[in-house]
Simulated assay, not measured.
Amino acid sequence: MKRLAAVALLLASMPAWAADYAILAPAAPGGGWDQTARTMQNLLQKEGISGNVQVTNVPGAGGTIGLAQFVNQSKGNPEDLIVGGYVMVGAILTNHSPVDLSMVTPIARLTGEQEAIVVPASSDIKTMADLIAKLKADPGSVAWGGGSAGGTDHILAGLIAKAVGVDPTKVNYIAYSGGGEALAAILGNQVTVGISGYGEFESQIEAGTLRLLALSGDVREPGTDAPTLKEAGVDVSLENWRMVAAAPGITDEEKAAITADIEKLTKSDAWKAELANRGWDDRFLAGAEFEAQLKADIEATREILTQIGLVQ
């Protein structure tokens, strides 16, 4: 009996694993959502928050294909998570998706990131002023390469055009399903200019294969000499953000447990180190505050997309 009691005491003193998690990244490998999901996978396990975390990629239509699969297959399952963000908000609107973010359980906003406007190093476009001049002369001649139609990259291209007096509906935007595909198109000179999160282009910028023309945030990226759009004379400021959500139909207790796991992750030194390494800004927001902010962002995005002609 003493031996059984000792074993029971030992088991009771050991940390209980949180639920194993399956994270759906609704985009192709290589992009921001995939990077977010795999960073979460690594650190949830490394920090002992979860014993086993799997990541699945379901690309297409700005994340709405993955979102539909998640909503239809994960209902009531507290082990299933999905990453998403600003891109998905726009894609839901432009694709007239029958599935939207009201059908999942928002957990937390995780990160924010400036958008980078880049050209191949061999391009004759040297500055943002050069790009604007080319855009004004012939909007259709400037092919913009980025993520999904209606996403942050597309919105930024439209806002830049509008800010410099070009009809945003004339923007020649070419959408790619993942950051890897967009990068290949930019490096292969298939498009004139590329837009994506700074972290997705950082290594190519540092290697000298891409030229950074400007950043979309309010401050310059440390270690670069590229201006913000406002500094370059374009009155636009925009930040991409990423979030994690749980399945529909989970209990309040399950939601609280997931939120606690994610908050523990985001407070870890390992997470903070990843943010610094990837150029992501800490934008953690959870609970009712995040849900209210998400609703506000959805309405603001609808207004922006309507103004630039992507939503009627």
Rank of each mutant, 00 (worst) to 15 (best):
R211N: 13
P227E: 05
R242G: 02
S13L: 12
L210W: 08
A37W: 15
M128W: 10
L110N: 05
L44R: 07
I258T: 13
A246W: 05
G112F: 12
E231R: 04
V83M: 04
G60L: 10
A276M: 10
I262A: 11
E79W: 04
G62N: 03
K136L: 02
T224H: 06
N42K: 12
V119D: 08
Y86V: 00
A273Q: 13
T64Q: 12
H96W: 06
Q190T: 05
L93V: 02
G165E: 03
V244W: 08
A6P: 00
M103N: 11
E299C: 09
T228G: 07
A273G: 04
I174W: 14
R278F: 06
L159A: 09
D100Q: 03
G76Q: 09
A28N: 08
V104H: 04
N57E: 07
Q114S: 02
R220N: 04
M243C: 12
Q312C: 14
E221N: 07
E289K: 10
A245I: 01
A27P: 07
T56F: 09
T64K: 00
Q190A: 08
G76R: 12
T105F: 05
A276Y: 08
I174F: 13
P227S: 03
H96A: 13
D235C: 01
R283V: 03
W241N: 05
G84M: 03
E200V: 04
T259A: 09
P120E: 09
E79M: 09
A37M: 13
P98H: 10
T36V: 10
M14V: 08
A19T: 15
A8M: 12
A137M: 00
G223D: 11
I107Q: 04
S237G: 08
A163M: 05
G309N: 06
N72Q: 08
W33E: 11
E181K: 07
D282W: 12
K272I: 03
W280T: 14
A108F: 00
E47K: 01
G165F: 00
T105R: 11
G208N: 14
N277D: 15
Q114N: 12
P29M: 14
Q69G: 14
D80L: 08
T228M: 07
P248A: 04
G151E: 01
D20F: 06
W241L: 06
K134Y: 00
E202N: 13
K170S: 14
